[in-house]
Design a protein around this nucleic acid. Structure first.
Lengths: 340, 340
DNA sequence: CTGAAAGCGCTTACAG
DNA sequence: CTGAAAGCGCTTACAG
């Protein structure tokens, strides 16, 4: 494989001149630049990434920590990954991916060995055990998901509180007075999936303020349990006219569950989910939903991370915590409740 | 960040001795080894990956090229990625991920700049335009998916021909005489998705040999088109008693389609899919299916790739083309056809 | 069993 | 506008 030394020799210049001609970091005569460029083409030269990283302390690689936990719905995670990956590429960065369940090892390895210039953490828990490691690392970090302590990192998340309110308000406005909210599994909450109770608490509070009743429940994130649980839930609350679903697996299972019971949305039941439009299309979900904007969140996280990496963020510009406002995508699954 | 020089100084030895003490590549007195190990702990030393890569020409990174094409069903791809990623980690390698639609750029970048020790190509087309680049690269490559020309790479795939035969034979044995096969979209075939026609041709031939009729068709891989098309298909072939589905999106849409038409499998229609057990669980699909074994294929590809990278494969050991035999996972969706 | 030195392939002050 | 040299942090022959 050709090195910059080969290029320099073929072009008849010094290695430093060849390097500068390629980086454009100092003035080079047109003639020399031509010769260097020709040599590059002739030799098919590409800089050695490791050597460059060693010399510049920049790898042009971003570490992406995605965890595929047993009790989580994998397809939902993929969209965040793609948002991160696509944006990184646009900005000239490659992605070093870890899918290890124990993210701490991967994080330590990537940061300590200087394989990456920055880190994106996905699926951040309230007291995420990766955060202390990330804060101690020399590289900047961006999170998708809101932890209890945001110091030292940039944080991006859907405004789940607003989402909870929006869901309740929407159905309240249509005349619903009894709702059921299905959240992620309870152990997701216990593990620190803060978004679950952020949405749930806001929904409960909104219902209280509006004077309507809301049954807040959890459901599995795996099949076929979730389908069974949804059925039991509908049995348990026959008076409920609206269903709020903050659980992708439950949303994916719902068409089958409703069909099996001979129910139609919105004629028999109004339904509002919380998932992305991409997700809705993949799973053919006909329910209106709060857009969770995984691609946008991934994009925002990478943009800010790269700003920090490249020092455009200013030496001690404070870290940001930025929420995406939930938007209700209307797919026609809500209506005024049927006359009791 | 501490360097090996720091470690050497603290341990009171030379840098080479520190290095050897850590790598174990030459005999070191117990006392010196202790001192070096203590220094490492004290300083929190981790080798710089770029420097090591430069010195050894080994990055301990594997490039993973996954393409998320418009007309393909993303969740199915994820499982191959996880198989590759998990196995790589077990063997001590990290994953550099590319999701670029134009994989050639990513491939060239990774290989030319020596960011990776080897490459795994996912979703390989019959005349995959990444292959010439991969063959010309100094790093070894492993494919998941069978191209027309396998020279210079290790290839792993499901035996789709066997899968097609197995589907037909299974239903034939139960007494079915008219079947419909739903494949991936036709433009997947045109783009070179060889597995589509490998399964289809084998199914057609098996049907011919058995003297039963098989209607081979294509369907979209996106919603809601695929649901509509499935409906039209069932309308067009009212005599068919068995449905073979080689299209993940169609399989995912099928429960809704059948429910809507008041059909039940296997009472009204026997159904056999071709997807992984993981996929079946994620999408709550109740159909018997040919296991597509994405995790196993990803694992096999990485194992062989690492063997080559590490030179255990022998200098000119021939490349392998290995097929996973399809197995039918019975989920109770097939039975003897209802009396005409 | 250990050390001094060269080299991997870059970039970037320093000098002219 | 260009070149010679140092240095990034490792590993590994070479020498003892």
């Amino acid at each position: 494989m050709a090195t910059i030394g080969d290029v320099a020799r073929v072009a008849g210049v010094s290695r430093s001149t060849a390097s500068y001609a390629l980086s454009g970091k100092r003035a080079i005569s047109a003639a020399v630049r031509r010769r260097v460029e020709d040599a590059v083409r002739e030799l098919g030269y590409t800089p050695n990434a490791g050597a460059r990283a060693l010399a510049t302390s920049q790898t042009m690689v971003i570490g992406l920590l995605a965890q595929f936990l047993e009790d989580e719905f994998a397809p939902a995670m993929l969209q965040y990954m793609l948002g991160v990956s696509d944006t990184a590429r646009e900005l000239g960065y490659d992605i070093l991916l870890s899918t290890e369940a124990d993210g701490r090892n991967a994080l330590r390895r990537m940061t300590d060995s200087r394989m990456v210039d920055g880190i994106v953490l996905l699926n951040v828990a309230e007291h995420d055990d990766r955060l202390p490691i990330l804060r101690a690392a020399p590289q900047p970090g961006a999170l998708v998901g809101l932890p209890a302590d945001c110091t030292g990192v940039d944080v991006f998340d859907l405004d789940f509180e607003d989402a909870g309110r929006l869901m309740v308000d929407h159905l309240h406005r249509l005349g619903h007075r009894e709702l059921v909210l299905v959240s992620q599994p309870e152990h997701v909450v216990e593990r620190g999936g803060a978004y679950v109770w952020r949405l749930q608490n806001a929904a409960i509070e909104a219902a209280r303020v509006r004077g309507i009743s809301l049954h807040a429940t959890f459901a599995s994130s795996s099949q076929p349990d979730v389908a069974r649980e949804l059925g039991a839930l509908l049995d348990a609350h026959p008076q409920a006219t609206g269903l709020l679903v903050n659980n992708e697996a439950a949303a994916a299972a719902l068409p089958t569950v409703l069909h099996a019971r001979g129910l139609t949305a919105p004629a028999d039941l109004s339904v509002v989910g919380r998932y992305s439009d991409e997700f809705a299309r993949t799973f053919s979900l006909p329910y209106s939903s709060i857009e969770s904007a995984p691609d946008r969140l991934g994009r925002m996280a990478v943009r800010e991370l790269v700003r920090r990496i490249e020092g455009q963020a200013g030496p001690d510009e404070p870290h940001v915590v930025r929420f995406v406002s939930p938007e209700l995508v209307d797919r026609g699954s809500t209506a005024a409740p049927r006359e009791g």
